[in-house]
Design a protein around this nucleic acid. Structure first.
Length: 696
DNA sequence: ACTGTTCGATTTTTT
DNA sequence: ATCGAACAGT
C-alpha cells in the first residue's frame, strides 16, 4: 500500500506516533497520505479501527475518505469514526445528553431556524428591526458562540446600544433553545467542549478510545474545533493535522488559519512534512493558480510544482449577459460530451448560489443532465421545510420553531393573535408552546398526537405519506390548482423517493436518525444516487477538497468575484483570492473562465468589469474565445450595451461623430477623442453615445 | 380575529 | 422569487 508514494508522502504516512503537521499544497496527494497512513497504522499497530478518529470538513469529503480506506482495507473501514466536526459533535451529544441537561429527542436548528427564533425574540422585546437587522444580530450571536464567549461573559463587553441589543437577544435565545430542547449548529461544537471540561472522566474515556486522531483542512478550524482536536488527543498526542494556509476560505465563519501556523508551538516535538509536488493539474493550470496566489501579502511563501504536461491554455470567454454566459458553457460542455468525456468529470463553479439558476436553465433547455450541490437546492423549498417541520414536531413536541411554522399551515384559523397568546402562555408557565396549547387549538394537537402514535407502526416513507395526508398539506395543495402548487406536490413526491432511497440503503430508518441526517447534510444531492453521469454545479466553497478534469468558473467579475461585500478590507480580499486559488486548482486537465459584461442577478441588471484575478492569471496563459456564437449573429451587439457607466479608456460610437475613445469623465461631462472629428466634450449619458466593446 | 392583497425590501460563502 | 409589513375586507 505504500508503494508509489514519493519520499515525503512516505515519511508522512509511515511515522505513526506523535504529533505531525502535513503542509499539503493543492493536489499534492494529501488524501492519499491520510488514507494510506490510516491503513498502515491498522496494519502495523495492535489497535482496532474503532481507535481511530478522522475529521473532515464536509460530508462529501468524509464519504470519499471512507470509500478510499475501504478500497485499501475492506469492511473494517466502516468501523473508523470518519465524519465532520459537526457530526462527531452530534455523536458525542447523543451519547451524553443527560450530563448536559438535554432530553434524548433534542432538535437541531439550522441557520434559518435560528433566524426564526431571533426574529420572534426581537419582536417580543420590541426591538426595531429597521434599526437592528435580524441577520446581523444572528451573526453577532453566532460569532460570540464561535469565539466561545458565553452570555455572562459577553455582558462584560457590552458598550454600545448595539451590544446591548445583542446581549439581550443572545440571553433569551439561549433560554429559548433550552426550553425547546433544541440546539443550534454552533452548539454541536460547543456542547462537547463543555462536556469535556466539566466531566473529565468522559473526556478520558474518549481519549482512550480515539488513540489516533486525524484532522483534515486544519487551516479552516475555528476555536471550538481547535479545542476539540486538542482535548481529545491530549493523552496520547497522536494527532496528525493536514492543511494548506493558501486554501483558508472560512475565516468569515470564525476559522483561524493561525491554528495551522501555531501547530509547531502547540507541539514543539511535532514532525513537519511539506508536500509541494502537485499530481493533479497541468503546468498551465498550476501556473495560473500560483500567479494568482502570489498577490497575497499575508502569506507563507511556497512553491507548488508539477511534472505533469503543459496542457491546453485556459479558455476565457467574455459574455454579453448571463444568457450568453450559460450558452457558452452549454456549447463547450456539449463539445466535451460529444468527444466522449464523462459528465461526471465536468463541473461548473460560481461564487454565489443564486448564480446556479442561470446555468440550470440553460442545461434544462439543452438536455444536459446535472446535479446541484448546495443549500439553495431542494431542502430549502417552502413545502419541504413545512413537511420537515411537522416531522420535527412529531419527534420533539417542544420544538417551538417547527410549531410556529406549521400551526397555521394549512390554514386552520390560528392567526397572529392566537399565536401571540400562546407564546405568552408558554413564557408564563416556562414550558414549550406545544404544552401551552389549549382551547380552539386542540385540533392541531390532536393531529400531532395521532401522528406520534402511528410513527413506529410503519416505514418512514409511509409515515411521510400519512403526515401529508393527516395535516391536510396534500389536500390544500391539490385544491389550489395552480402550476406552482403542482410543482410543490411533485417536490413532496421527490422527498418520498429520498426517504425510500435511504431506507433501501440503510434498511429500516427511524424518524430520529433520518432527521439527524437531514440537519447535518442539508443537501439533497447527498441522498441522491451518485451513479448517474451528470455535470456537477456548485459554489467554490463547496468544491473544496474535490477535483474534476474540466472546470468552468462563471461570473468572474469584479463585484461578484471578488464579491462586493468582500472588498472592505485587504484581509477579505485575500480570502477571495484564496478562494480563486481553490477554484483553479480543482481542475486536472482544462480550465474555463467566463464572465459577463452585464447580468441579471437578484432581480437587478448590473454591469461589471472582468475580475482582477483574470489579469493576475496573465494573458499568456489565456486563450480568449472569439464571439462566434449564434448569439452574435442574431443581435446587433452595440445595441446590447448601455452607456450608463462610461469610464476613461472606454471605446464609444457616436451617431454623428463616429468612433472615439473616452479620455476623461467629470461629473456628467465626458471628454471624448473621436478618430475623425477630434476631441469633444459631451453629456456622458446622451443617447447618441454608445459604448463599444473593446475586443473583436 | 383571521384572510387576502399589495408593496417594498432583500439575497456571499457552510456545517 | 420570497418574506414580511401594512392595510382593507370578511
Amino acid at each position: 500500500m505504500i508503494e508509489n508514494l514519493n519520499d515525503r508522502q512516505l515519511e508522512a504516512a509511515t511515522n505513526l506516533d506523535g504529533p505531525m503537521l502535513v503542509l499539503a499544497g493543492a493536489g499534492s496527494g494529501k488524501t492519499r497520505v491520510l488514507t494510506t497512513k490510516v491503513a498502515y497504522l491498522l496494519d502495523q499497530k495492535d489497535i482496532s479501527p474503532k481507535n481511530i478518529l478522522a475529521i473532515t470538513f464536509t460530508n462529501k469529503a468524509a464519504k470519499e475518505m471512507k470509500e478510499r480506506i475501504f478500497n485499501l482495507i475492506g469492511r473494517e473501514a466502516f468501523l473508523i469514526q470518519i465524519s465532520t466536526f459537526h457530526s462527531f459533535g452530534l455523536k458525542l451529544l447523543k451519547e451524553n445528553y443527560e450530563l448536559l441537561g438535554y432530553e434524548s429527542n433534542f432538535t437541531i436548528l439550522d441557520a434559518d431556524d435560528s433566524l426564526t427564533v431571533i426574529k420572534k425574540i426581537m419582536k417580543e422585546q420590541g426591538i426595531d428591526s429597521n434599526k437592528y437587522n435580524y441577520r446581523a444580530i444572528r451573526s453577532s450571536i453566532s460569532d460570540n458562540k464561535n469565539e466561545m464567549v458565553s452570555v455572562s461573559e459577553y455582558e462584560k463587553f457590552v458598550y454600545t446600544d448595539y451590544d446591548k441589543v445583542v446581549y439581550e437577544v443572545y440571553k433569551e435565545y439561549e433560554n429559548s433553545l433550552k426550553r425547546s430542547n433544541a440546539i443550534d449548529f454552533d452548539d454541536l461544537l460547543l456542547l462537547p467542549i463543555k462536556l469535556f471540561s466539566e466531566h473529565k472522566e468522559v473526556l478520558e474515556k474518549y481519549q482512550e478510545q480515539y488513540k489516533y486522531v486525524f484532522i483534515d483542512e486544519y487551516q479552516d478550524t475555528n476555536k471550538p474545533q481547535y479545542l476539540m482536536s486538542k482535548m481529545i488527543s491530549a493523552k496520547y498526542k497522536n494527532i496528525t493535522v493536514v492543511g494548506d494556509n493558501d486554501q483558508a476560505i472560512f475565516t468569515w465563519r470564525g476559522a483561524d488559519y493561525k491554528n495551522i501556523l501555531n501547530f509547531e508551538k502547540d507541539y514543539p516535538d511535532a514532525k513537519v512534512v511539506i508536500l509541494d509536488e502537485n499530481y493533479r493539474s497541468t503546468k498551465t493550470i498550476l501556473k495560473a493558480a500560483n500567479n494568482v496566489i502570489k498577490n497575497n501579502k499575508i502569506r507563507k511563501e511556497k512553491n507548488l510544482w508539477t511534472n505533469n504536461e503543459e496542457g491546453p491554455l485556459i479558455k476565457y470567454y467574455k459574455a454579453f449577459d448571463e444568457k450568453d454566459e450559460s450558452g457558452f458553457v452549454v456549447k463547450e460542455i456539449k463539445k466535451l460530451i460529444d468527444d466522449g468525456i464523462n459528465p461526471n468529470e465536468i463541473c461548473v463553479l460560481y461564487r454565489a448560489n443564486a448564480q446556479s439558476r442561470n446555468v440550470e436553465e440553460a442545461f434544462l433547455q439543452s438536455n444536459i443532465s446535472y446535479r446541484i450541490v448546495g443549500s439553495y437546492a431542494f431542502y430549502n423549498r417552502k413545502e419541504i421545510k413545512d413537511l420537515i417541520a411537522y416531522l420535527k414536531l412529531v419527534h420533539n413536541e417542544k420544538d417551538d420553531v417547527s410549531l410556529l411554522r406549521v400551526i397555521n399551515y394549512p390554514k386552520r384559523g390560528i392567526g397572529s393573535k392566537s399565536i401571540e397568546n400562546l407564546a405568552i402562555e408558554s413564557k408564563n408557565n416556562n414550558c414549550s408552546m406545544y404544552e401551552a396549547i389549549s382551547g380552539g387549538k386542540e385540533e392541531f394537537k390532536k393531529i400531532i398526537e395521532l401522528l406520534k402514535k402511528e410513527k413506529d407502526k410503519m416505514s418512514l416513507t409511509d409515515f411521510v405519506d400519512l403526515v401529508l395526508d393527516k395535516t391536510g398539506i396534500k389536500e390544500s395543495l391539490k385544491n389550489e390548482h395552480t402550476l406552482e402548487a403542482d410543482i410543490r406536490l411533485e417536490n413532496l413526491e421527490e422527498f418520498k423517493s429520498i426517504t425510500k432511497n435511504v431506507e433501501e440503503a440503510d434498511g429500516i430508518v427511524s424518524l430520529e436518525d433520518f432527521l439527524d441526517e437531514l440537519s447535518l447534510v442539508s443537501d439533497a444531492s447527498e441522498n441522491q444516487k451518485e451513479d448517474e453521469d451528470k455535470v456537477t454545479l456548485m459554489t467554490m466553497h463547496a468544491v473544496k477538497g474535490l477535483e474534476f478534469d474540466y472546470v468552468f468558473v462563471v461570473g468572474v467579475e469584479e463585484g461578484l468575484f471578488p464579491h462586493l461585500n468582500s472588498m472592505n478590507s485587504e484581509e477579505e480580499l485575500e480570502e477571495e483570492r484564496r478562494l480563486c486559488y481553490v477554484a483553479i486548482t480543482r481542475a486536472r486537465k482544462k480550465l474555463y473562465i467566463i464572465n459577463s459584461r452585464s447580468r441579471l442577478l437578484y432581480g437587478k441588471v448590473s454591469s461589471n468589469v472582468p475580475s482582477r484575478f483574470i489579469a493576475e492569471i496573465g494573458d499568456d496563459l489565456l486563450e480568449q474565445e472569439k464571439k462566434e456564437s449564434i448569439f452574435t449573429k442574431k443581435i446587433n451587439r452595440e445595441e446590447m450595451i448601455t452607456n450608463n457607466d462610461l469610464k476613461p479608456g472606454d471605446l464609444v460610437k457616436h451617431e454623428k461623430y463616429g468612433n472615439g475613445v473616452v479620455l476623461n469623465i467629470e461629473g456628467k461631462i465626458a471628454t471624448i477623442s473621436f478618430t475623425k472629428n477630434g476631441v469633444k466634450k459631451l453629456l456622458k449619458d446622451h443617447k447618441a453615445i454608445k459604448k463599444v466593446q473593446m475586443e473583436v
